[in-house]
Simulated assay, not measured.
Amino acid sequence: MRAMICRQWGPPESLRLEDMERPPLKPGQVRIAVRAAGVSFGTSLVIAGKYQRKPPFPFAPGTEISGTVIEAAADAKAFKVGDAVYAVLDWGGFAEEAVAHEVNVFPKPPSLDWAHAVPLSTSYPTAGAALLWPRFMDLQAGEWLLVHAAAGGVGMAAVEIGKMMGARVIATAGGPDKCAFARAHGADHVIDYRAGDFRDQVLQITGGSGADVVFDPVGGDVFNQSLRCMAPEARICPIGFAGGTIPSIPANILLVKNLTVVGLNLGYYLGWSPHDARFEQAARMADLHRRLHDAVEAGALRPHVDRTFALEDVASAFRALLDRQVMGRIVLAM
């Protein structure tokens, strides 16, 4: 089978298209003929050797796929050959075939094509877990939700889920095109962060009260500014540091305003942490994915793919992503 292979840490341009043996099928796994694979900032860190998980060389990167089940282990009962699915992998997605634990595989909504099913692997579950799970943000109807990087794959998902839950959504994005994109996906108010600080604008929009819930994939100064435009007893969830800086949390502001900070690492529930929790968390994740599946079929969620690239053009796909030329997601089409 063909696969994009990483043999040393480096930029995406270091990946090479090679013919490789099919990955072995282990108990509890299914083999999938890959039709589409997601390109993400996190995967760029894996390729560079800067992610907390480092696969053994040589390996095919890629953790999000959609495709057709072509083989199932004897003890894998959830799916059968021919089923259309999307899946989360440890790695191996940038290939014509991949294997996945069946607890990390989910039925593809019939209304979505292969490319548009890919964001359901991690983008929508990240936003869904942060906003919907009671131990996290537990977003309620009528609350003010502030979503940063709202034109990105995870931010866009947070905007849509917020509207689905009846929240009043304020989105930040960079530039008029991305602001228009966020508004088209449901944001009630959009702030162009390139035009100045968003703090005063959030306070003005909310009548001085501030945001009740903040979804932050950016970190750095965005996180610090957010603390200063949050309502008393508000919640903020950092889910990444795309801005490149990990903020230090000023505990005095948390105390004075009675704020709650809850981080979310979705990878813990996917089996990507030192403790492999994917099996003990399988029912919880399956319930979240069923909820997202139903929302897609009801038209409440509309995954967006900015563009697709061929497998051999993966370096160009990463360059578009890292140069911030993307709205929604970028996908490799097999």
Rank of each mutant, 00 (worst) to 15 (best):
G271H: 05
L270P: 13
T122L: 11
A182R: 12
R324A: 08
L15H: 01
K54A: 05
D216R: 15
R16E: 15
G62T: 06
I330Y: 02
E18C: 09
M230D: 05
G49D: 06
V81W: 01
L266K: 11
A187I: 11
A251T: 15
K108W: 06
L270I: 12
M137G: 09
L89G: 09
G155D: 07
H185Q: 12
A242I: 03
A300L: 11
A167W: 03
A171Y: 02
L227M: 04
R7V: 11
V256W: 02
D216I: 09
D113N: 15
D177G: 10
L264K: 14
V218L: 08
I236S: 12
P11E: 10
V214L: 03
T43I: 13
K108T: 12
W133E: 04
R16S: 13
G210I: 07
C229P: 05
D306N: 14
S111H: 05
V222I: 13
R228S: 00
S40L: 00
F41Y: 14
L132K: 00
L259D: 11
W114P: 11
W114K: 13
T126M: 04
R235W: 02
L301Y: 12
N265H: 15
I32F: 02
L120D: 05
A78F: 00
G152I: 02
R2I: 02
Q52H: 12
E102P: 02
F181G: 12
A158M: 07
A115Q: 13
W272M: 15
A76G: 07
N265R: 13
R31F: 01
S14G: 08
K77F: 01
G240I: 11
A98V: 01
L146F: 03
A167V: 05
P23Q: 08
P250M: 02
D177W: 06
T68E: 04
L321R: 00
W91K: 00
M137L: 12
W272A: 14
P12I: 08
Q8C: 11
D113R: 13
M20E: 13
Y124K: 04
T308F: 00
L146I: 09
M156K: 11
P58C: 02
E21L: 12
P247I: 08
G244D: 04
P119T: 02
A129C: 09
F41T: 14
H185C: 11
V169A: 04
A98K: 04
R35S: 14
V85T: 03
A158Y: 11
Q201I: 10
A84G: 10
Y268L: 14
A150N: 13
P109M: 01
L270W: 04
G67L: 02
W133P: 00
H289V: 07
F241H: 15
F79V: 07
P23L: 04
D306R: 11
V331R: 05
V305H: 07
L288M: 13
V34A: 02
D113C: 06
G155T: 07
K54E: 09
K257R: 14
L266Q: 12
F318P: 13
L203H: 04
D306T: 07
G42E: 01
A150K: 11
L145I: 07
I170N: 06
V85C: 01
A157E: 08
V81A: 07
H116T: 15
C229H: 06
